[in-house]
Design a protein around this nucleic acid. Structure first.
Length: 621
DNA sequence: GCAAGGTC
């Protein structure tokens, strides 16, 4: 038998070939400098048996959508025609050499064995590969490998247990491709042409619409608007201070603060009339600081900027590199629960040699191990991100690579250890009718915090001893004054959280959409001004054009506004339904296009809303 | 000159 294996990228082809070939493979060049063909023999067992294998790869998607040439003119083709225009799916220019390679290699193969990543897009890429292979050999039979990391035993198990391509997942992707392409073209063309015509300053600009770009912009404008609208409000609070055992204790008012000065004065008056404060409750209770959940891509892209000061996009790129070199598991995962059958002990044992966290890992193996927490997400394709092999700093190309590897490893070890534990004392006092409280914390066991150095949990100052019903004359009872502070502009982790919560983009593309709205000059990134903890943090503000687009579309029809996340979120839900076999591709495409025909009609008839807003923000003020 | 999703 001759088997053609095709992976989603060269690095996987190379890794799998070296595992299955036992290090004995022959490498042939192809017309693409990124892709090689690896030849070796392998006994797959079962129906396949001993085979001549060629392992090769694509580079992600092979095909792209396009309209036939008669639709390519922006000015002479009415946009609404694109709702019904035929869409061609053809091999993209960049992928042509890869398609040729697959066609040629398939011509004398009995089986095509697909090794694309096991996720929705991977199933679709599998069907792209399969179509190309069949155009070179109509009798070729297709199998699909089920794997989610590059561990030797896992790959061998996958090789011996092929399954079929998942047609439902591939259909969901086909629906997304068609909808994104049509809607992107239709709305980009109408708004670009109309706005270019009306504003000199936009003459050379493409005002693109994308179902992910616009909601991303919407989040930035939304926060900006709240900052704009903010008016500080004065508030008053009562501070109660005691002096005992050479310690000063400040108690916090249960009402926290009031926005009426007179009311605050009345409350203070009552306290003062009472003259003494009385201890009404002393509680001592254990306090737990929970260890983190298993690591997902979204968490990684949020914590990269936060803990490591590496941008979301860079963090992901580095994680991808660590993955393709076999140091960490697949970095694009939504799963925050480890499979119960997973051998965590072996993964931990690979870390015991590390000078920094080796001892911690050893201690986990000799009794400190605790089962990881389970989050609520499972994509059924990839486990949470975790280290596969130990690596030293010298073996990595940069300091940032080391930071990311270290973070992934420390996070994993933290997941496998115990929560941090402490004891909390809460003292409640009453003066007149007003209640106050203060608490003290003693950290007893750091546990996971010993390895997860990114979080801090410190004991507070020890409270002096208070007994129930103690009475004391406070050293000080007075009113303090303050004002509410403005919300701040969106940071990258905040924006990613919003996109994630609303299903805008995938874990792997959120960082790219954030770049796109900056490239289109809808949004600017800048350093936060001022003093304090947030100073120097990167934050996003909309440009005049960004604000004008959002306000214009909101005015056209708030319920359906393209800048709101609802439409995309709904589409994501529908795609999941197709994956589950509960809906079909054609139904989703038809229903969605019908919705968007209405949105398009509204946009066209009320375009003056956009023009007016652009006039206001681009020329006015 | 248009999207979003893969990947280099």
């Amino acid at each position: 038998m001759r088997i053609l294996c095709v992976a989603e990228k060269n690095s996987i082809a190379k890794s799998v070939a070296s595992i299955l070939g036992g290090g004995h493979f022959r490498r042939r060049d192809t017309k693409s400098k990124y892709i090689k063909n690896y030849d070796f023999d392998y006994d797959f067992g079962g129906q396949l048996g001993d085979c001549n294998v060629t392992m090769t790869a694509v580079s992600g998607h092979l095909t792209e959508a396009s309209f036939p040439p008669e639709y390519s003119s922006w000015s002479s083709v009415p946009q609404e025609v694109l709702f019904d225009a035929q869409i061609r799916i053809s091999v993209s220019k960049n992928s042509a050499p890869l398609a040729d390679n697959i066609r040629r290699e398939a011509s004398n193969a009995d089986y095509l064995y697909i090794w694309t990543d096991c996720d929705r897009e991977g199933e679709y890429i599998g069907t792209e590969i399969s179509n190309v292979a069949r155009s070179g050999n109509s009798r070729i039979r297709v199998l699909r490998a089920d794997f989610n990391n590059l561990e030797r035993t896992h790959i061998i198990r996958a090789a011996r247990n092929p399954r079929n391509l998942n047609q439902w997942a591939a259909d969901a992707v086909a629906a997304r491709i068609e909808l994104d392409f049509r809607l992107g073209a239709i709305f980009t063309r109408i708004q670009t042409l109309q706005l270019q015509k009306a504003f000199e300053i936009l003459k050379k600009r493409v005002i693109s619409y994308g179902p992910c770009q616009f909601p991303t912009l919407g989040f930035v404008v939304d926060r900006w608007q709240r900052v704009e609208d903010f008016l500080p409000e004065q508030f008053w609070s009562i501070k109660l201070q005691d002096r005992r055992q050479a310690k000063t204790v400040t108690f916090n008012w249960k009402r926290n603060r009031v926005f009426d000065h007179l009311a605050a004065l009345v409350y203070l008056e009552r306290c003062l009339e009472a003259k003494v404060a009385k201890v009404t409750n002393v509680v001592q209770k254990p306090k737990t600081k929970y260890k983190p959940l298993p690591l997902t891509t979204v968490e990684l892209t949020k914590l990269g900027p936060k803990f490591l000061r590496i941008s979301a996009k860079k963090t992901l790129e580095i994680a991808e590199h660590l993955y393709t070199n076999g140091f960490v598991s697949y970095p694009r995962t939504e799963t925050d629960q480890f499979d119960p059958g997973m051998d965590l002990q072996t993964l931990i044992s690979k870390q015991t040699s590390d000078p920094s966290w080796g001892t911690f890992a050893s201690d986990l193996l000799s009794g400190n191990f605790r089962n990881p927490r389970s989050g609520s997400h499972n994509d059924k394709a990839h486990p949470p991100i975790h280290p596969i092999a130990h690596v030293t700093q010298n073996a990595l190309p940069s300091q940032d690579h080391w930071k990311v590897y270290q973070f992934i490893t420390r996070r994993f070890l933290a997941c496998c250890s115990d929560h941090a534990r402490g004891a909390e004392t809460i003292v409640e006092v009453t003066m007149g009718d007003e209640q106050f409280s203060q608490s003290g914390l003693t950290v007893l066991e750091h546990n996971y915090l010993d390895v997860y150095i990114y979080e801090k949990w410190n004991s507070s100052a020890q409270l002096p001893v208070y007994e129930m019903n103690d009475e004391f004359v406070p050293r000080q009872v007075n009113i303090i004054e303050g004002a509410t502070t403005s919300p701040t502009y969106l940071t990258e982790p905040e924006l990613i959280s919003l996109m994630d919560a609303n299903g805008i983009g995938t874990d792997a593309t959120m960082a790219e959409h954030i770049e796109k709205v900056q490239e289109r000059e809808y949004v600017l990134k800048r350093k936060r001004k001022g003093k304090g903890s947030g100073a120097g943090v990167s934050e996003f503000v909309p440009t005049s054009l960004g604000v004008a687009l959002v306000k214009g579309y909101d005015e056209i029809g708030l319920e359906w506004s393209l800048t709101k996340p609802f439409l995309r979120r709904e589409m994501e839900v529908q795609l999941k339904n197709i994956e589950k076999g509960q809906s079909s591709k054609n139904v989703l495409v038809e229903v969605t296009l019908t919705q968007f025909r209405d949105v398009f009609h509204l946009t066209k008839t009320r375009f003056e809303c956009l023009l007016r807003r652009c006039k206001e923000y681009l020329e006015g003020q």
